[in-house]
Design a protein around this nucleic acid. Sequence first.
DNA 1: TTGGGTGCAAATTGTTTGCAATTGT
DNA 2: ACAATTGCAAACAATTTGCACCCAA
Lengths: 144, 144
Amino acid sequence: MPDRGERIIESDDLRKVGLKVTHPRMRILDILSNAPKKHMTAEDVYRELLEQGDDIGLATVYRVLNQFETAGIVVRHHFEGGQSVYELDHGGHHDHMVCVETGKVIEFHNDQIERLQREIAEAHGFELKDHSLVLYVRPKRSKA
Amino acid sequence: MPDRGERIIESDDLRKVGLKVTHPRMRILDILSNAPKKHMTAEDVYRELLEQGDDIGLATVYRVLNQFETAGIVVRHHFEGGQSVYELDHGGHHDHMVCVETGKVIEFHNDQIERLQREIAEAHGFELKDHSLVLYVRPKRSKA
DNA sequence: TTGGGTGCAAATTGTTTGCAATTGT
DNA sequence: ACAATTGCAAACAATTTGCACCCAA
């Protein structure tokens, strides 16, 4: 099976963006790559590190995540509820759907919506630089 | 000209939702109704109150805005950049476009996008409860 | 009168930063 | 060796909360 853009990020990717290959950075990359949840808060990552026996400070987690964001290795999202959530940036842009009951995050992409957004911005004399779309959903009731 | 849903919110609206008609609440409603910016942060409202000579605490502004949100009198948005912004809820739903250069906020509504969102949620076995769409734009360059 | 409302200061929450010690290269 | 990186604690920013006093109903 051809890998669908799920390329694993490794040491070279860090060097490439001018970041030294340190233990904390590699561990955080590993967590982000292998964790069951693709979208994690800084605290999530921190707790996971502790559980795996790594003694890395929360401040470092924040610093590293910021550097990764700047380097384009992770994307930061601001869903409702204060904390930022981070996810590895595998390239393909997508939007999110958050289940308000389970908290589960589903990714999706819709070309038509993307195009409409661009058109709307244009129509108002603007150029679309970026956007944020989050659908808050709940499981379709069987009959309730 | 028929008023296009720009109904002014008054004392009765507060009583209706079980909130006493107090000076701070009325003043904040007034600011929200007559301010040049329709989208304000708690600090924006607070500063405006001070400028108008009202001596109302910042904590009260936050408390009142929260009560208003719960009561459905205002809507709270989380654009990029920490602070929450509030705007009077005049009923009609709309999304936002934020100019990353001037900070200006433009409202828009697009039925097609609304419909697509509902369809996407359905297609994933969910029911759309709410959504948040913000376009980050910049003035279309003349030639730069 | 009286329970909700307010101001102020102190407490929280999420995140950033200063600095001395540590570590990749 | 030397600059980059980390850990820890202190600093921050936005928002919330405890409590004694105050005011709308």
